[in-house]
Structures are given as C-alpha cells and as structure tokens.
C-alpha cells in the first residue's frame, strides 16, 4: 500500500509542476502579447525557455524517475488538446519531452551536459503552437492563387518570412534555453540546493 501511496504522490507532484509550468507559459504568452503586436507566437518558446529553468530542475529533483518529463509534456499537450487552442501541439510536446527524458536517464553523459541538452530539447516541446502559422500560410497562398497572382510572386512574398522566422525561432530557443538553465541553476543553488541536493551540477 505504501508503494502505491508514494506513486500517487509522485503523480500529484507531476500534476502540480505541470500547473506551475503552465503558469509560466501563460505569463510569457501574456507578456509577449502585450509588448510585441504581431507574430509574437514565434517568440513564446524562447521566452518560456528563459523563465522555466527552475521548474525543470525541481521536477528532476523531486520526481527523480524516468517518465516524469514525458508525463509533463503529454499532460501539457492534452491540456492544449482539450482547450483546443493548439491541438497539434500534442505531438511535439510528447516527442521532445520523451527525448529529454531519454537524455536525462538513459545516457552516460556528464551531468552538466545532460541538464543543458535535456532542457533545450524540452523547450522545443512548446513549438507545437507555432504549427498553425504554417497552415494559415497555406490558406493564404491558396487565396492569392485564386486571385490570379503568379507563383513567382507568391514565392517572393513568402521566401523571406518562412525561412528567416524559422531560423530565428530555433536559434532563439537554443540561446535562451542555455541562459534559462543558468538562471535556473543560480536560483536552485540559492534556495533549494541545501534542502535537496540531488542535482549536482557544480563545476567539476
């Protein structure tokens, strides 16, 4: 019975950390919606990666078991699915959090490398909400084509938007997740390391 109790406690903790993670997502979305007028959804994963490092670290600390990160990614995806805002966000959410889990628990890398790499991959899970942009683009192209614009013109309009925004998105996620992990580690050492201390990411 006690084994089942501890399992339930783990699942409840995962739920609570998912809620906190969701709060951070909401905060960064609201911040960007207020400051950047258009195409702000491209920057959401990056800003979120900047802020959520400490949540990721505490999940690793409290629920130190393979599957915790995957559950968080899937639950976030399910929440998206039911609320219907970004139903396709389910797929990247599950895939990238599973990859992060594999790196954290199934590889023999240096602890520090694991943290940074896993967190970067985990941050990519939020790219799901960007997928609608691509589909909107296709609808727009159809509309242009039906108005008799030539294919060359359409290509010209969209070549710059897609490739640059895609690269900017990926690079910004990479940079901000590294910085976010640094901030997270700093906060972790200041407040939580004395209590728990199962993550040992100090130099060495």
């Amino acid at each position: 019975m006690t084994q089942q109790q501890s399992k339930i406690k783990e699942l409840v903790s995962i739920g609570i950390y998912t809620a906190v993670y969701f709060l951070v997502v909401c905060f960064s979305t609201a911040l960007l919606k207020l400051t950047v007028p258009i195409f702000n959804s491209i920057m959401i994963p990056a800003l979120n990666a900047l802020l959520a490092g400490i949540v990721y670290l505490l999940v690793l600390d409290k629920v130190n078991r393979f599957g915790a990160l995957t559950t968080i990614g899937s639950v976030t995806g399910l929440f998206f699915l039911i609320t219907g805002h970004f139903p396709l966000a389910f797929v990247p959410g599950v895939v990238f959090s599973l990859l992060a889990d594999l790196i954290q628990y199934k590889t023999q890398l240096n602890q520090k490398v694991k943290l940074y790499l896993g967190y970067t991959l985990f941050s990519f899970g939020l790219t799901g909400p960007l997928l609608p942009l691509w589909f909107m683009k296709r609808a727009y192209i159809n509309e242009l084509a039906s108005r008799g614009k030539s294919q060359a013109y359409i290509d010209h309009v969209f070549s710059a938007i897609t490739s640059t925004s895609f690269i900017v998105c990926i690079i910004s996620i990479l940079i901000s997740s590294v910085i976010g992990m640094m901030i997270g580690l700093k906060i972790y050492r200041k407040y939580f390391a004395a209590q728990e201390g199962s993550i040992n990411a100090d130099e060495g």
Binding site: I8, K9, V12, S13, G15, I54, L58, K62, I183, I187
Partner: peptide, 25 residues
C-alpha cells in the same frame, strides 16, 4: 526586471508545492 520578478514569484510557489503535493495526494 523579469529575472528578479521570477525569483520573487516562482520561489514561494515552488517552496509551497511540497506541502500541497502531500495534502492533495
């Protein structure tokens, strides 16, 4: 000051999660 804000808001929430997890479970 987003980083300072993050520290002020998130750290109290995360500290309280342990108690809440015990109660909810």
């Amino acid at each position: 000051h987003p980083i300072k804000g993050l520290e002020y808001i998130l750290v109290p929430i995360l500290v309280s999660t342990d108690t809440i997890a015990t109660e909810l479970s």
